[in-house]
């Protein structure tokens, strides 16, 4: 009924210590992970070929990045990296200092020390280590009992001394019994003392001054403020922030705007990049960052970025950079929603818009060429006798010719341009199947996935026909591990390196978006699958199509790396046997290149 | 807010209308105007005989021109026939009949356009046919052809592959696919 308060400061330090540990230990672990183990910003992949490609692209990127972009990137990277004096670090430092202070206080507190030493430790009493055997315990007891036996004591000892030694003897006997006698041992293990349950006191682990008449109104006030102001404030802030954003990371108002545009979209309208940019310009995220600007302003800024002009009335490049860098998540969100309403044309246009924004190139027929650095647009457009739209076509000419076509006179500049051109990954389809792990074919109502085998190649390299690659290079392991998780093969590929994108405000990595549509109605059937791991080592190979004329006996297919993409299907195979036709689209988000767009037959057989 | 003009007998909106409202008002006005000018008090969804005759005459003369290899005139007549069908028919006439008529005439118009080398217009009409649900190999063959001639090689291949999923053994589509592949190989160097 009557609770004791912690007058002697025996227990409240432990309480505060526990609270501190609850906060500090997870925080410390996560901070250590972030500082030392987080690999998401890595430029080392453990894959020397991939690092080689990375290095080449980084060098070229650095050469062509403008000063404005460089400054913006530095500021962005600085804020992303953890600062020494960030809030987290300060909390950690102060927290651990408090812990040290409390531990020191506990050690200096005699009352705590006394109650700790009051604990019954049979091993210490017998003078043996906790791992001693029964024989050691017996011999230790025998020695001590001889020393402390009341009958063996000298008659000269005073009453106090005698009492002390007798008490000692009792303790030693108890200790011996606690370790050997069954009943006493049970008592010791259950209650911590061989005599059974000791007195237990219950109290409140808080000093009494907190509840004394003087301090208690203050404590109540603190409680009131915490419960009625501080707690609701933080919970509301957290809740509205969580509620404001969809799973894909875009604002709910932006998402509902996109859904509205998608639902009211007329099939007679042709989807263009301009249309997508117009939809983007109404994003809520932009309004939050720049409340004073209108949708028309945002649209103009994005167009300025794509056309590499500066027509907007807002001349500060930071405004444009923030808007453009936000487009990444907005476009991914729109892509997801477009797949949700099954609109293939809009999904495709979203990906094309992505490329236009990343490369700052408008969606003209010449976009593959215009994404290259140093191109003299006027000379190129008026010059070509033979219509050149693709990098592949460009590389049918000798380097000097290419310089003339692109209007590049400087040899050093031409070399850089050709480096970029030959390091843009192109995909060549080798094989695509519907696979059901453990089955030789697709059976009715099974769950197949799509397995795509392709070659990553440079536009400069000679085309290798798919037949040149033996089945052994394309087949997959059939062991149990593979059947359990057929998608594990994707994890073995290294992450994509940073892209060549000197106009995009932040450093970014290429990704491949995979869309699947039904050929019967031409509509998409599932959300996009984004691939961010792919080996680009083939880009390092010297296989210039202007020099290699024929694929002779010296051609070794094993030297080439085959890329794999696995696309899970969102629905099972049809319940009846027959053929179903699917269109698979695999597009790069960052480059204008030869993407994959092909038809696959699902042969459903018993 | 909507206002009604007793002279023109038409509805219009006060202020800036939404797209949906604009379409709805347009449809109501079209229906009203057609109803007012209808002379037969017992009108039915059956197509008007005189309008049908007019359309048929125009269309037939267009076909005759085509047979005589006078394609510009053929195009003019067939286009006129389609215009008549769009303008002169009452909006309450049976949709199924109107659709079939339009699809039939469009197919002939497309063929004439292709002969005349007017590929972009042929493509638009082909897209229209596909939008009305006519997804058939014959339509996709012509669409592939038009896209190839317009230099849209990637799109041509995609349409050709779609055609082949409808009829995997179609010889013309197979030949077109080979042509797409060949042209794309050259396009990509």
């Amino acid at each position: 009924q009557s609770y004791e308060y912690d007058e002697g400061s025996e227990t409240w330090p432990f309480f505060v210590l526990t609270m501190l540990f609850v906060v500090l230990v997870p925080l410390s672990i996560s901070q250590i992970y972030r500082l030392f183990l987080d690999r998401s910003n890595a430029t080392e992949y453990g894959d020397p070929e991939q690092e080689k490609v990375q290095k080449i692209l980084e060098e070229v990127n650095d050469e062509f990045v403008t000063e404005d972009v460089r400054v913006f990137r530095q500021a962005y990277e600085k804020s992303a990296r953890s600062n020494i004096w960030s809030k987290r670090n300060i909390v950690l430092i102060v927290g651990w200092a408090l812990v040290a202070f409390l531990i020191q206080r506990i050690r200096e507190n005699d009352a705590i020390v006394a109650s700790a030493t009051g604990l019954f430790d049979p091993y210490a009493l017998l003078g043996v280590s906790p791992s001693a055997t029964d024989r050691d315990i017996k011999s230790a007891y025998r020695k001590l009992s001889v020393k402390f036996h009341p009958d063996k004591l000298s008659k000269d000892l005073g009453g106090e001394e005698r009492a002390r030694i007798e008490e000692m003897y009792v303790q030693i006997s108890k200790a011996y019994e606690a370790l050997t006698d069954e009943i006493t041992k049970a008592n010791y293990l259950t209650y911590g003392h061989p005599d059974g349950p000791q007195t237990v006191s219950h109290g409140i682990a808080l000093p009494s001054f907190l509840v004394d008449r003087v301090a208690s109104p203050v404590v109540i006030l603190i409680y009131a403020v915490m419960l009625s102001i501080v707690l609701p404030y933080f919970v509301t802030k957290w809740w509205s922030r969580t509620n404001s954003f969809t799973k894909k990371g875009i604002h709910v108002k932006t998402a509902s705007h996109f859904v509205d545009r998608l639902a009211n979209f007329k099939p007679s309208e042709i989807v263009t990049v301009d249309l997508i940019v117009n939809w983007l310009s109404n994003a809520e995220e932009f309004k939050i960052i720049f409340p004073n600007l209108t949708a028309a302003d945002f649209e103009e800024l994005i167009h300025d970025h794509i056309d590499r002009t500066n027509n907007s009335r807002l001349k500060d490049p930071k405004v444009r950079f923030r808007i453009v860098s936000k487009c990444h998540s907005l476009l991914h969100g729109l892509l997801d929603l477009a797949c949700g309403v099954r609109n293939t044309e809009i999904a495709n246009a979203t990906l094309e818009t992505f490329k236009c924004i990343v490369q700052a190139v408008p969606h003209t027929p010449y976009r593959q060429i215009l994404q290259l650095p140093n191109v003299n647009k006027e000379k190129f457009l008026e010059g070509s006798v033979d219509e050149i739209y693709t990098l592949g076509k460009l590389f049918t000419y000798e380097d000097k010719e290419i310089g003339k076509i692109l209007g590049i006179d400087d040899e050093h500049k031409l070399k850089k341009t050709l480096t970029v051109a030959s390091h843009i990954p192109h995909l060549k389809l080798i094989k695509a199947d519907f696979l059901v792990p453990g089955e030789p074919q697709v059976t009715p109502s099974s769950t197949p996935h799509i397995s795509v085998k392709f070659l990553v190649r440079s536009a400069k390299q000679k085309i290798i026909p798919p037949e040149k690659f033996p089945e052994s290079m394309l087949e997959e392991p059939q062991d149990f591990e593979f059947q359990k998780d057929p998608f594990s093969i994707l994890e073995s590929q290294p992450p994509m390196p940073y892209s060549y994108a000197p106009f995009f405000p932040t450093k970014r990595r290429n990704a491949l978006c995979c869309l699947v549509a039904l050929q019967k109605d031409g509509k998409l059937i599932q959300t996009p699958v984004v691939i961010d791991k792919l080996s680009l080592q083939n880009l390092n190979k010297d296989f210039d199509k202007r020099q290699v004329k024929d694929l002779d006996e010296n051609f070794k297919p094993e030297e080439w790396s085959i890329g794999t993409i696995k696309i899970p299907l969102g629905q099972p195979a049809p319940a009846e046997t027959g053929d179903a036709f699917f269109r698979v689209i695999i597009k790069s988000t960052d480059y204008f290149t030869s993407d994959l767009d092909f038809t696959m037959t699902m042969q459903v057989r018993e | 807010e909507i206002s009604y003009d007793t002279n023109s007998k038409k509805l219009s909106s006060v202020g800036e209308p939404t797209e949906g409202l604009e379409i709805a008002l347009g449809q109501v006005n079209t229906l009203t105007t057609a109803l007012i000018s209808e002379t037969n008090p017992n009108f039915t969804p059956q197509p008007h005989e005189d309008v049908s005759k007019l359309i048929k005459n125009l269309f037939d003369s267009g076909l005759k021109n085509a047979q005589q290899n006078k394609f510009p005139e053929a195009l003019k007549n067939v286009s006129l026939a389609i215009e008549m069908a769009q303008r002169k028919r009452a909006p309450w006439e049976a949709f199924a009949i109107q659709l079939k008529e339009l699809q039939f005439m469009l197919r002939h118009k497309i063929d004439i356009l292709l002969v005349l080398g007017r590929y972009l217009e042929a493509l638009q009409d082909l897209d229209m046919l596909m939008n009305t649900g006519l997804i058939q190999p014959e339509v996709l063959i012509r669409k592939t052809d038009a896209l190839l001639k317009l230099g849209q090689l990637d799109q041509a291949r995609i349409e050709c592959e779609r055609g082949l999923t409808l009829q995997p053994q179609n010889a013309k589509l197979k030949a077109l696919l080979m042509e797409c592949t060949r042209k794309l190989a050259d396009f990509n160097g």
Partner: peptide, 22 residues
């Protein structure tokens, strides 16, 4: 019928977009 007419009338605009794109 009206939807059909609207779709037919959008052909001109579509042509213009194609010309601009290609």
């Amino acid at each position: 019928n009206q939807a059909l007419t609207r779709r037919y009338n959008s052909i001109f605009k579509r042509k213009e977009v194609c010309i601009k794109e290609w």
